[in-house]
């Protein structure tokens, strides 16, 4: 399941930001590496909410800076 989450998140990020999935690692930083702006991040949060059927608060979303953090956040939510 963990592997599936990772692959899904990476693919969503790649699709949204127009990069290849193999360019994305856990350490990939949304702002510094992918040049995401606030609108991209807001779109990405909606993508993740839809994909994983969960709700991410603005406060929680602001803590997510890297792809690895996004994967960890979703895995923790799913475990609950």
């Amino acid at each position: 399941m963990a592997g599936d989450t990772r692959e899904t998140v990476v693919n969503l990020v790649a699709e949204r930001m127009g990069v290849e999935p193999d360019q994305i690692t856990d350490d990939t930083h949304f702002v510094n590496d992918l040049q995401s702006d606030s609108l991209d991040m807001a779109e990405l949060v909606i993508d993740l909410e839809e994909q994983f059927d969960l709700s991410i608060s603005d406060e929680e979303a602001q803590q997510i800076e890297t792809v690895g953090q996004a994967i960890k956040y979703i895995e923790e939510k799913q475990a609950k």
Partner: peptide, 13 residues
């Protein structure tokens, strides 16, 4: 279909 929290932040711009 999905409610007011599912529209795109990019919609207006």
């Amino acid at each position: 279909q999905s409610g007011p929290h599912r529209t795109s932040p990019l919609m207006i711009p």
